[in-house]
Design a protein around this nucleic acid. Structure first.
Lengths: 210, 210
DNA sequence: GTCTATAATCAGATAGAC
DNA sequence: GTCTATCTGATTATAGAC
């Protein structure tokens, strides 16, 4: 039973977060800001130490090296996002209302500066740290898509023959909108307001085959 | 007329590519591989020099510094992608056929390893080089969306009240699919085949309100 | 213009005092 | 466990020969 079964889903390995001491928490809190701002290679351990208010050697006494600190931090942030999704349990309600709530809740409450920064950093380091990207894919993305897939399956009146594909279209439209707005256009002006995206997305899904 | 009008569209500034000497071409070709693989901070000028087959000083005699080399390289790659879009001129044809051709053409021909790597690098460096991300947004993304918006406007029988929003949904679904597949899941298995995405996407758009 | 060699700085990691 | 001080190697950029 203690054997590591490599065919077990990765989620099980990360469903519980490791506990950290207050000192380790301070280090991680300092590391968040620097890594999210400057990326892995652009972050120096000196700056992490300064930001966390500890000495560099203290970091090395709690984490093996820079890679160990980075992966511990990223796994923690990923699992946290994952657990907020798990808190939703199951999506229920009238499609017209629930889909609107999901879309607006995602755009207005789930997405914040830290969400965008985490997404950007995972994408940025997906060559050097491919396992972190896969962890995010198998937990956050897969869970969100699964929730939406089950919802569509429970509503055959919507007329979707491939609930999983529609779930991707729905969530992918929202995520790509955030990426476009926050990264490719910048704060000063995006020619597509949130409401317009939500209205057209709902119209496509709800008036499908109607 | 020689004055720089800051309200002019950014595209005009970059519609023509600067010409480079053969030596500069060699440097840029070497730089592509290293920067796309390792990111900005993770790339050393020594490795660029080795990859390009020139000495480091030769690079500095042609480009101001590391930032100058990086921005020149990224602008060039962005403009190239932009110009392949411009080559399309205007989208025409029966919606059921053209939308399928566009989606499959994007997934099977436009998207390759270099496309993904460029997208990843622009996202990764959008904090340090926000202007590069905006250049990509105002050229590649805006052009693609504009082409699709005009197509939808020329086909009112599809019943879309907001062609621009639907254009984002169409293209955003494709781009987010590529990001999910290539970055968040990895090569070894993605639970949603391309055909399923295309079929559901076309069904949503063509059977809308039908 | 291009190269080799070097300057000056910075970063990851460690030693040793307390 | 925590800190100050330090080591070692890598990195950006430049000097000077050809």
């Amino acid at each position: 039973m203690a054997e590591c079964n490599s065919s077990a889903p990765a989620i099980a390995q990360f469903a519980t977060m490791p506990q950290y001491t207050p000192k380790q928490e301070a280090i991680l809190r300092g590391a968040v800001r620097v890594f999210l701002q400057s990326g892995y290679a652009g972050t120096s351990m000196d700056r992490v130490a300064a930001e966390a208010g500890v000495s560099k050697q203290t970091i090395y006494s709690h984490f093996q090296d820079k890679e160990g600190l980075f992966t511990a931090l990223m796994e923690r942030m990923t699992i946290r996002r994952f657990q907020t999704f798990l808190g939703m349990e199951r999506l229920q309600g009238e499609p017209a209302l629930l889909l609107r709530q999901f879309a607006e809740g995602f755009l207005n409450h789930i997405v914040d500066d830290e969400y965008v920064a985490l997404l950007r950093l995972i994408i940025a380091e997906s060559v050097r740290f491919p396992e972190l990207a896969k962890l995010y894919g198998r937990t956050v993305i897969q869970t969100g898509r699964q929730l939406m897939t089950e919802f569509f399956q429970q509503h055959p009146e919507l007329g979707f023959t491939d609930a999983e594909a529609v779930a991707h279209i729905f969530i992918g439209s929202l995520v790509s909108y955030v990426l476009a707005q926050e990264i490719f256009y910048g704060k000063e002006g995006f020619p597509l307001e949130r409401d317009r995206l939500v209205e057209s997305l709902l119209a496509l899904l709800l008036e499908h085959g109607g």
